[in-house]
Amino acid sequence: MQEKHSMGMAAKRRIANTFAYIMLGIISIVWILPFVFLVFQSFRVESTGVVGYVFPHKWGLANYVFLFSAECNFLQWYFNTFIIALFVCVLQTAMQFMMSYTLSRFRFKLRKPLMNIMLVLGMFPGFLTMIVLYQVLKTVGLTGDNAVPGLIIVYVASSGMGYYVSKGFLDTLPKSLDEAATVDGATKLQIFFKVILPLCKPILIYTILTSFMGPWGDFIFAACIALGSQTGMNVAAGLNSWLQPANISANFTHFCAGGVIVAIPVMVLFMFLQKYYVEGVTGGAVKG
């Protein structure tokens, strides 16, 4: 016992740290590998289906060339998604911020009921509404080929319900700022724009980032609203259609290449704004 003790803290720690490094190495490999495989597959040109090996027998850019050729709608999908993401990130951020700002900074009679109602509404599965929304949008003519504006409306309209994270952030800004501004003679509008909004940069960037990323990943609403149209789909729905049993053998490598092209801009954006994302996620969870 004494012997072991004299072996020293340093040695003990070294063993523990070596073990930790090995663990972290394994974890990193497990988390990275699928993406590496995906990239490899996107360069495979000898066949287009699912195969059981990692390294292509023949490397080439044929899959990428296919994506940008006229015979495929990928560019259209990409463009659709980009437009949707652009509108959604602006409008959704605005809606969410209006909601969370109001709930955080004002005390009015209907505040608690409103929050409770939204809590209850949030407990209903979102798909329930889709059946109705599809029919409504169809009557207005915003489905199929015109799915893009329809999707924007669907994404944006109810986004006030996702106010939690920004409200958590706003709650941490001291109330005396508002009060000081009130005494200084600012109207509520001026407080909003001149005092609070400039302080909300981190959370605004977080909201913009998440709402911009949302449309790239959502395929279920997109597939439903764009039902039956090749040009109305977004990237996710389009790529997903390539993996349906009927198409997979002809399109698996195309899917991989498309995945890479979709992932790159989102990833670049994400890496730049990582700090804000981490802050938002952490803050959101702690505040519940």
Partner: peptide, 18 residues
């Protein structure tokens, strides 16, 4: 960053591929 990397890739791509 390695772990965060996997958040950045749209979920449908990673899940479908996996």
């Amino acid at each position: 960053t390695i772990l965060v990397f996997s958040i950045a890739i749209p979920q449908f791509i990673s899940i479908l591929y996996v």
